[in-house]
Every structure is written in C-alpha cells, then in structure tokens.
Amino acid sequence: MHYLSGFQRDLLYVISGYERPSGQQVKDELEQYYDTEINHGRLYPNLDTLVNKDLVEKGQLDRRTNYYALTERGEEAMRKRRDWEENYFSFQE
C-alpha cells in the first residue's frame, strides 16, 4: 500500500469497518475523523482510484447510491500493511 496516499489508506480502513458502505457513509466517517468537510471532488476520485487498482469493489445499492467493499486484493493489502505497522509500533502496557 506504499503506492497509496494517506487519504486512500484511510478510505480502505473505513470501508473495511463497514459492510458495503455508501460513499456518503464513508464521507461522514472521515469527516468525523478529520474534523473537517470532505468534498465530493476529493472523495469520489480517490474511491475510483481504489476501484481501478482492484482494492475496492464498487456496486449499486439503488439507482442513486453505490456501495464500496474491499476486494480480496484489498484485504490482503490491508493485512500486509498491518503486519508491517506492527513491526514498528506496538503499545506496551
């Protein structure tokens, strides 16, 4: 996932935490985390990039709403990232 921006990695984390969230759900979650508004011009092109890289699947919930879900490749990329992070960061209590 080294080839992704931090924002794109955050999108993957949010998508992985829901079952087929809509773009609006992803946007709402990120706005809470970033404490700022995420505009559509930033959100949807980055989601499309993840779809084009086969990390995220995009489907239709209804005529106006799409859902997003991690692909197998996306899940594997997330696992590898978590393993890499754990090599460098861990909480010790």
Rank of each mutant, 00 (worst) to 15 (best):
M1P: 07
H2N: 15
H2C: 07
Y3M: 12
Y3S: 13
Y3Q: 13
L4M: 04
S5Y: 03
S5A: 03
F7L: 06
F7E: 02
F7M: 02
F7G: 04
Q8C: 04
Q8A: 07
Q8H: 03
Q8P: 03
Q8G: 04
L11M: 06
L11H: 04
L11R: 02
L12S: 04
Y13N: 09
V14H: 01
V14C: 00
I15F: 00
S16M: 09
S16N: 14
Y18N: 08
Y18D: 02
P21M: 00
P21Q: 01
S22H: 00
G23R: 03
G23Q: 02
G23I: 01
Q24T: 12
Q25L: 07
Q25D: 08
V26L: 01
K27M: 03
E29C: 06
E31L: 02
Q32V: 14
Q32I: 11
Y33S: 09
Y33R: 13
Y34E: 05
D35K: 12
T36S: 14
I38V: 15
I38S: 00
I38L: 08
I38T: 00
I38E: 02
I38Y: 02
I38Q: 01
N39G: 00
N39F: 07
N39D: 15
N39C: 05
H40L: 08
G41L: 08
R42T: 14
R42A: 12
L43W: 01
L43F: 00
Y44P: 00
Y44C: 03
P45A: 05
P45T: 05
N46G: 05
N46A: 15
L47Q: 05
L47T: 06
D48M: 12
D48P: 01
D48S: 14
T49S: 13
T49N: 13
L50F: 05
L50M: 07
K53Q: 13
K53H: 12
K53L: 15
D54Q: 10
D54H: 10
L55G: 08
V56I: 12
E57D: 11
K58G: 05
G59K: 01
Q60G: 04
L61A: 11
L61Q: 15
L61F: 14
D62K: 04
D62G: 02
D62T: 10
R63Y: 12
R63K: 14
T65Y: 06
N66W: 07
Y67M: 03
Y67H: 08
Y67W: 14
L70K: 01
L70T: 03
T71G: 08
E72Q: 13
E72S: 14
R73C: 06
G74D: 06
G74H: 07
E75Y: 10
A77Y: 03
M78F: 11
M78H: 09
M78C: 09
M78E: 11
K80M: 12
R81T: 05
R81V: 00
R82W: 06
R82H: 10
E85T: 09
N87C: 10
F89W: 10
F89T: 10
S90P: 00
S90L: 04
S90R: 11
S90Y: 10
S90H: 07
F91C: 09
F91P: 05
F91I: 12
F91R: 10
Q92Y: 12
E93C: 08
E93V: 13
